[in-house]
């Protein structure tokens, strides 16, 4: 890949929604509900009880264990994509159908990719906020660049 980067770590994962994305990691150990949890116009986490409150998911490789909450979450992800405020990629430990629906519809409707990949618990812990990573969901790996 790139020259001059001394340490590069590759983590194995499993494809949920294919696609390749590069971005900065934003990680939380708490589940995320996109409906009532993320402002679809700004991409800011707007649930005051969430540890990422007021942080933006836009363009980030968003790392959280699993989704929760209402079935309207899919619509919020589609709106985030329309507003160019969607995460670059999503990394989970477990992905349920409601969370996967947003990126799947996004691919077929707006032609935009939001790859989703899931990891085992141990690999999940290796991702830290601020790291620069490349997610290749289709081939099932994440590269940590620094």
């Amino acid at each position: 890949m790139q020259e001059g980067i001394a340490v590069e770590k590759k983590i194995k994962g499993y494809c949920v929604v294919p696609g390749i994305a590069r971005g900065e990691v934003l990680t939380t150990s708490q589940p995320i509900s996109f409906w009532g949890g993320v402002n679809p116009a700004t991409g800011l986490i707007n649930d005051p009880r969430h540890e990422l409150f007021n942080r933006s998911v836009a363009g980030k490789v968003l790392v959280f264990p699993f989704g929760k909450g209402s079935s309207t979450g899919s619509l919020i992800i589609l709106e985030l994509a329309r507003m160019n405020k969607a995460p670059a990629a999503i990394v989970n430990v477990r992905t349920e159908p409601i969370l996967a629906t947003g990126p799947i519809v996004c691919k077929h409707f707006y032609g935009k990719e939001i790859p989703i990949i899931f990891l085992d618990e141990k690999s999940f812990q290796m991702l830290q906020t601020g790291q620069h990573v490349t997610v290749n969901a289709a081939e099932g790996f994440i590269i940590i660049h620094n």
Partner: peptide, 17 residues
Amino acid sequence: IDATLYMVDAGLEFAEK
């Protein structure tokens, strides 16, 4: 169908399209 509330424009765009 659940997605009948007008909440965000993406939902409207999807239904209309």
